[in-house]
């Protein structure tokens, strides 16, 4: 069976007034049917650009895809025609954005926006589309869906709007759902509901899920696999529990440590010093070298490739064997 999604050596650059910014610098990803993958990274790591490139949502220019392949069930999306892409978007892959309010059209009732998908892709009648929209709103647990189908986006609360966006994304039963920071704008109690909903829908429909977030605890909650991104590269990849529980890349370790926990009360947080590199001038060697406690000459002269560090795990670090025992972030 072919992989649901395979990204091979993807490279994306942005031309800016200051120069060329490297947003994605050789990313490889793969996802099977029914699998969930978390892409974890900070701002500028390239995680959102990766998602947008897969969905074909990059503004080009200024963005430019410099190489690579994105295979969706074996079909290369980068060479596909615009028409073919439109056919695939919705029924095969779809996306949930961070800001639900701007993802919905304010002047149309939500029911019509969901129903529109059925009318365009499946040729439903107006009436059938509306019924399907109500069913979809039920599925994402919007209370009294039948009576709210004619309401406008602003009449819903933030959590309900995100449910509607998810309903639209799921309407055509896609095999791949990409959720880009779907709960960042929401309150914790609502975030818990939405994450629950995503997990449940993913399992029920045997869908592939890519969850993009900066929040390590959200990745832990939801996904089986995780890819940690830093400065346009994946630095560590593998089963979520193993990667976050026993990191083999100093950056992953730093991330998981700098989240406060009970035992650190009254002490300093172990922080990664410094800040991420300038995307306009990426260093020749490892991008993390300037903040890394293990860095040596090799790290600043050449970039470490992703190498296997155990069953189903890879890490891009020359010293991945030493990470667990040797790294100490200032305390």
């Amino acid at each position: 069976m072919t992989q649901l999604l395979e990204v091979r050596d993807l490279r994306v650059q942005f031309s800016t007034a200051q120069g060329t910014a490297t947003a994605i610098n050789g990313v490889n990803l793969s996802l099977e049917h029914g699998q969930s993958l978390g892409i974890l990274g900070e701002s500028g790591s390239g995680k959102s650009v990766t998602a947008r490139t897969i969905m074909g949502l990059l503004d080009m220019p200024p963005a430019k895809i410099n190489g690579g392949e994105i295979l969706l069930e074996g079909e290369d999306l980068l060479t596909a025609t615009a028409k073919r892409r439109r056919q695939l978007t919705g029924p095969v892959m779809s996306m949930v954005f961070q800001d639900a309010l701007s993802a919905l059209n304010p002047v149309h009732p939500v029911g019509r926006q969901i129903g529109e998908l059925y009318r365009v892709h499946r040729g439903y009648s107006r009436k059938a589309a509306k019924a399907a929209a109500i069913e979809m709103m039920d599925r994402v647990r919007i209370p009294a869906a039948a009576s709210r189908v004619n309401d406008y986006p602003h009449q819903f609360s933030g959590g309900m709007r995100q449910r509607i966006v998810i309903a639209m994304a799921l309407a055509l039963d896609p095999q791949l759902l990409i959720a880009d920071e779907p709960t960042t704008a929401l309150d914790v109690t609502v975030q818990a509901q939405i994450l629950e909903l995503l997990k449940e829908q993913q399992a029920e429909n045997n869908m592939g899920l890519i969850l993009i977030t900066h929040d390590i605890s959200v990745v832990r909650e939801v996904t089986d696999q995780v890819a940690v991104m830093y400065a346009g590269r994946i630095v560590e990849q593998g089963p979520t529990a193993h990667v976050l529980g026993d990191p083999r890349h100093p950056y992953t370790l730093g991330l998981s440590q700098s989240v406060a926990n009970e035992d650190l009360k009254g002490r300093r947080l172990p922080a990664i010093e410094g800040s991420p590199p300038d995307l306009l001038a990426l260093p020749r060697g490892c991008s993390f070298a300037n903040r890394c406690p293990l860095a040596d000459e090799q790290c600043s002269s050449s970039a470490p490739p992703l190498e296997s560090v155990g069953a189903g795990r890879t890490s891009a670090c020359f010293h991945s064997g030493k990470v667990a025992s040797n790294v100490a972030y200032s305390n």
């Binding site: 390590i216 730093g254 700098s258 922080a271």
Partner: peptide, 14 residues
Amino acid sequence: LDVSVRAQVVNLLQ
């Protein structure tokens, strides 16, 4: 702030 930077600023405040 990003997670890794957040810890620095929390430490500074303390």
